[in-house]
Design a protein around this nucleic acid. Structure first.
Length: 226
DNA sequence: TGCCAGGCCGGGT
DNA sequence: ACCCGGCATGGC
């Protein structure tokens, strides 16, 4: 089976099993960007508490985040873990937006995706997954987000090489899917849902994996096709 | 109870 | 160019 057919079947199977995920959970681009930083290696429920604190303090605002002192910010986001380092990362991002785009997030997303991504990655604390989450979910730009679940799922099903890099995994999806923001959005969310339910290190519940059939149809072809 | 979560950085080989 | 420790909370 061709990779594009395979990825489409996986997508359809996941959508049928889990339904639309309505990502990203967040009301504004800024809230989404903040959530993307706070959720680094952290359970989303913890991030929700931190975001709730920020909202209650009326701090979900670029200028206020820029002006608030580091210790206060760290205290507000404490439930999300790594609060000292994440406070610095939030600051670095917000200061960058204020400096480069005069505090206008919408203006930021007008830039061309390529150079914008590179510049985002130069901000301390913004790695590839965080950058891409911001671009896709806050900016609505056609970027595919790769995370630890995406890696595991793709490796397990031999869709990618064991040593594939982040960009190579992302390319596998963008090369074999229509360039469609809604699909990128939903696909990543569905892979995370699949990962949460199936890919727990302890017991991979392969018996209830909704994409199992897709690969069992022609197991030998999925093997060598990169 | 210990292990894990929607990473990333910096310092050491 | 890899490899690894550090960062920290809340939930099961």
């Amino acid at each position: 089976m061709k990779n594009n057919d395979l990825l489409t079947k996986v997508y359809n199977a996941l959508l049928a099993a889990f339904g639309s995920q309505h990502w990203w959970p967040g009301d504004t681009p800024l809230e989404i960007a903040v959530g993307a930083i706070l959720t680094q290696n952290t359970n989303w429920t913890n991030v929700e508490k931190a975001i709730r604190n920020l909202k209650q303090a009326d701090m979900l605002d670029l200028a206020r985040l820029r002006d608030v002192n580091l210790r206060t910010l760290a205290r507000l986001i404490k439930p999300s873990g790594y609060f000292n380092i994440k406070a610095k990362r939030l600051k670095a991002f917000v200061e960058w937006v204020c400096r480069e785009f005069e505090g206008d997030l919408e203006a930021m997303f007008e830039r061309s995706v390529q150079s914008l991504r590179e510049d985002l990655l130069s901000v301390k604390g913004i790695g590839p997954e965080t950058a891409d989450s911001i671009l896709l979910y806050a900016g609505g730009l056609p970027v595919f987000v790769v995370d630890a679940y995406t890696y595991r799922i793709c490796r397990r099903h031999r869709l990618i090489l064991e040593e594939a890099t982040y960009d190579e995994v992302a390319e596998f999806f963008t090369d074999n899917l229509p360039e469609d923001v809604a699909i990128y959005n939903e696909y990543h969310a569905l892979l995370v849902m699949l990962g949460k339910m199936i890919c727990k290190r302890r017991k991979p519940r392969c018996d209830v994996c909704p994409i199992r059939d897709v690969f069992e149809e022609e197991p030998e072809l999925a093997e060598d096709e990169r």
